[in-house]
């Protein structure tokens, strides 16, 4: 069953075309990855899923509904893990989740229970009453994941879920995501780590300068083009995933 459908999706910022006539369909329960370096248009697409970016052309349908007209309802069924850490720095770990639950109209008794359950799930129970500023980067990322799950979302949208994490924390996030996948949650993620795409994704969209140059399973892509996903990327775009990352890292 198709749960998300995009056709001719385009986004212009002035003269810059960030997303260029992109088509894709995402099926319920699959893990779909957008693979590409920074600046390929991945984050712009992610932000379109929750109406923070409005397409210049084309459309996205989620649950078969038009996103512009049913934004609140659609968003009530999505979980979003943003690229930037946007936790409430002034609040404790637990309070962050409770405040977030309120936006979904979850009652206070239920939200407290749910929040505690999720802290347990991501291993932050002991940090429940700690100020966010005292959490490590990996813990903050885990809390963001817990926050994205507060409304039991059917679709989880993850923008660079493990960027900046140490290998141990990264593995933790991957394990959690695999568990969610087994529970039939649809996962959509962006990444520039080929290992992440290979480990998690059922299908991958290879992105270059706003365009999708190929969509297939990692196995098929590697079968057709040979080597690992990095080699696939090089053959499809003439560029290296890694080198581009380094350029980006130097910039930021």
């Amino acid at each position: 069953m198709v749960i998300i459908e995009a056709k001719g999706l385009t986004k212009d910022y002035g003269n810059l075309r960030a997303v260029d006539h992109v088509d894709f369909q995402i099926k319920k329960g699959e893990c779909f990855g957008f693979l590409g370096p920074n600046g390929a248009g991945k984050t712009t697409i992610m932000r379109m899923f929750y109406s923070l970016v409005v397409p210049t052309g084309g459309y996205i349908k989620i649950f078969g509904m038009d996103l512009n007209r049913h934004a609140s309802y659609i968003k009530s069924r999505l979980g979003i893990l943003p690229q930037d850490n946007n936790l409430d720095l002034e609040l404790t770990t637990l309070k962050n989740l409770i405040v977030y639950a309120r936006y979904f109209g979850i009652s206070s008794s239920k939200s407290k229970r749910k929040a505690e359950e999720l802290l347990e799930y991501v291993g932050l129970t002991e940090k429940a009453h700690v100020n966010i500023r005292n959490l490590s980067g990996g813990m903050q990322r885990a809390l963001l994941l817990a926050r994205a799950l507060i409304n039991d979302p059917e679709i989880l949208i993850l923008d660079e879920p493990t960027t900046g994490l140490d290998p141990h924390s990264r593995l933790n996030v991957w394990n959690k995501l695999n568990e969610l996948k087994e529970k039939n949650t649809t996962l959509i993620l962006t990444t520039h780590y080929m290992e992440e795409a290979e480990r998690l994704c059922d299908r991958v969209a290879i992105m270059d300068r706003g365009k999708i140059v190929a969509i297939d399973t990692p196995e098929n892509l590697m079968g057709i083009y040979g080597g690992n996903l990095e080699d696939v990327y090089l053959k499809l775009t003439g560029k290296k995933l890694k080198e581009e990352n380094n350029v980006e890292n130097n910039k930021s």
């Binding site: 609140s72 009530s76 946007n86």
Partner: peptide, 14 residues
Amino acid sequence: FQKTFDAILATPVN
């Protein structure tokens, strides 16, 4: 700076 609005707008709040 805190991107609080991004967090809020990812929920049913418009």
